[in-house]
């Protein structure tokens, strides 16, 4: 059977489709033209403008604050959830599993809207705190999923071994189980962090005055059709950070695999 070239061609086209808009963004961030419609010469002035935008830096700080607390909260709750779901089989766990899936299937707008109603009807002031509470809520399920998949490969016999060697239950948990699961929990936490930093819709519903996160500010800049090149410059910087992070984590895992391979 002669292999068809169609899959290869589609894959290349899809990759071009994925990277074309990103290329346009990067190119336009160095474009003299205000509207990026045609090339009018190289400039760095949009990066200078970006540097002067204090509201953006404040928003970035807000985003990071929320993401740190949200990922810590989600790591704790999600790990507990994963243990309970892995360990026990009961009616309670069936309901528990359903609750964990709900944030994964509910469209963001429903989540934002329902949380807004909760805060409004209980009289809680909208602020960075309500944003953090909302972010923890949609991050828990992702952490639970990641940790649960690690637990499936986890050999619980080593806990018995630790107990046989005289460890208390707490010691066995803290010194054996937790360190072994730490990479899984951290991976879940990292996922939560990126989801939190990226979130716009839920945040838009539950944010209060002065609690704008970076996506909220970017949204209002796009919406008001102002300073497009500054958004381009910001996007390019964020892209550089993302690619560097991906590259670094690739290098780390590649190094570890190489080391493990040589053992």
């Amino acid at each position: 059977m002669k292999p068809s070239r169609l899959p290869l061609i589609t894959t290349l086209l899809v990759l071009a489709f994925f990277y074309l808009p990103i290329g346009v963004l990067i190119l336009n961030s160095f474009n003299e033209s205000r509207f990026g419609t045609r090339w009018q010469g190289f400039t760095l002035k949009w990066y200078e403008r970006l540097w002067e935008r204090e509201d953006l830096w404040m928003a970035l700080l807000n985003s990071l604050k929320v993401a740190v607390f949200a990922s810590i909260g989600a790591m704790i709750l999600g790990t507990c959830a994963a243990f309970a779901l892995h360990r026990y089989r009961s009616r309670v766990q069936t309901a528990h599993a359903l609750l964990i899936t709900m944030p994964l299937v509910l469209p963001e707008i429903l989540m934002g809207m329902s949380l807004l109603l909760l805060f409004v009807s209980t009289g809680i002031q909208l602020s960075l705190l309500t944003v953090t509470l909302a972010h923890i809520t949609f991050c828990v399920s992702y952490v639970a999923l990641v940790v649960q998949s690690r637990l499936q490969d986890f050999d619980f016999q080593i806990v018995d071994a630790a107990r046989d060697l005289g460890a208390t239950k707490l010691q066995a948990f803290l010194k054996v189980v937790l360190p072994l699961l730490a990479p899984g929990i951290l991976a879940g936490g990292l996922l939560a962090f990126t989801l939190s930093v990226d979130d716009f819709v839920v945040t838009f519903f539950v944010k209060g005055p002065g609690s704008d996160t970076l996506p909220v500010v970017i949204y209002s800049m796009i919406k008001k059709s102002r300073e497009f090149p500054v958004i381009n410059a910001l996007s390019t910087l964020l892209l550089v950070v993302t690619f560097a992070a991906v590259w670094a984590s690739q290098r780390l895992t590649a190094d570890r695999e190489a080391r493990e391979g040589s053992d």
Partner: peptide, 13 residues
Amino acid sequence: WTNFLIRVFAWNQ
């Protein structure tokens, strides 16, 4: 892994 809004914005341009 880049911001969702930025990806939409790129198409906007």
